[in-house]
């Protein structure tokens, strides 16, 4: 497996269209935001260079620190629930026939709802007086009110996210499982491997690359969650569900000076980048050890 890939500089030509198309829409906005972040923009024609000033201000902001802590807990919970649940679902899904098609279509539905509508559905769905979830919980004797109780609100946003995004993990894992050649299972059967052994030594290593994508996607997207909690709770009650992008938008809207908000955006971007980078390298090494262990 670890035979080195051949060096071929002409492979650049295959990558070039991707590079151009992404850089076209990504680099100019990024540079513009960097430019905003080091200036005090008094009016469209008048701005003063302020250097690191906004960055210092942003890094000292206590509200940002608490939003960051809330965000980290939220994203950790998202990964801890959605990744195992998604894998379990992928293993449970029928592999052939009309049942498989039906389950795929039903499972994918939450993904296809525009994000503002996701918030709207849950806004009604979780209401104790007129929503299915809220009504059932109240009838069962729970004192549930996501609009007033911070804990209820936080859990509701988390459950909404699980509902919305677990199918993404499940679909990726399902496609990854389907890509495992039949011969691997036959070999495992001949060895008399248990279900767990098949999962641990055949399925999981083969799922490594799709799971890496799933983990990184869920990490970065949950870190930038905005529209759904904005519609559902507006960040409240209090600041219970004010995650980073909620706070950023509160700062950016109604301020004519984009400097501080731009500096905030870049710090925010670098935090996501750092977390993804650490996680990416961690998962790459775990996978590499696993493969060495098998060949040894």
């Amino acid at each position: 497996m670890s035979v080195a890939k051949p060096v071929n500089q002409r492979a650049w030509w295959l990558v070039l269209p991707v590079l151009v198309s992404v850089a076209f829409s990504a680099l100019i906005p990024l540079m513009t935001v960097v430019n905003y972040s080091v200036q005090d923009i008094l009016s469209p024609s008048q701005s003063v260079f302020v250097g690191w000033e906004w960055y210092k201000e942003v890094l000292r902001d206590p509200e940002l620190h608490s939003a960051l802590v809330r965000q980290l807990i939220f994203s950790a919970a998202v990964l801890a629930i959605q990744i195992p649940l998604g894998i379990a679902l992928a293993l449970s899904m029928p592999r052939e026939g009309w049942r498989s098609s039906l389950v795929l279509v039903l499972l994918a539905m939450p993904l296809l709802v525009p994000w503002n509508v996701v918030g709207t559905i849950w806004q009604i769905f979780a209401r104790a007086d007129i929503g299915l979830l809220g009504y059932v919980l109240t009838q069962m004797g729970f004192d549930y009110n996501y609009a007033q109780d911070p804990w209820d609100a936080w859990i509701t946003v988390l459950v909404m996210d699980v509902w919305h995004w677990t199918p993404l993990v499940a679909l990726l894992a399902f496609a990854g499982l389907r890509a495992i050649p039949e011969a691997y299972y036959q070999a495992a059967r001949i060895d008399g491997a248990s279900r767990w052994a098949v999962f641990r030594h055949v399925q999981l290593p083969k799922l490594r690359s799709v799971l890496m994508i799933a983990v990184l996607l869920r990490l970065m997207d949950s870190f930038m969650i905005y529209t759904e909690p904005f519609v559902l709770t507006g960040g409240g009650p209090g600041t219970a569900t004010t995650f980073l992008s909620q706070y950023l938008t509160q700062k950016a809207v109604g301020q004519f000076d984009l400097g501080p908000a731009a500096a905030f955006s870049l710090v925010y971007f670098l935090i996501i980048l750092l977390l993804c980078f650490v996680l990416y390298n961690f998962m790459k090494n775990v996978g590499a050890d696993e493969q060495q262990g098998r060949s040894a």
Partner: peptide, 30 residues
């Protein structure tokens, strides 16, 4: 997947970083 070339690993990760920009402020330059 098949070749190694100058900057391949950096480029591969860089691609994904373009998904990590929080939209609020980036909308204006777009």
């Amino acid at each position: 997947s098949r070749y190694s070339f100058l900057g391949d690993k950096h480029l591969f990760f860089w691609l994904l970083t373009n998904r990590m920009t929080p939209p609020a402020v980036f909308l204006l330059p777009f």
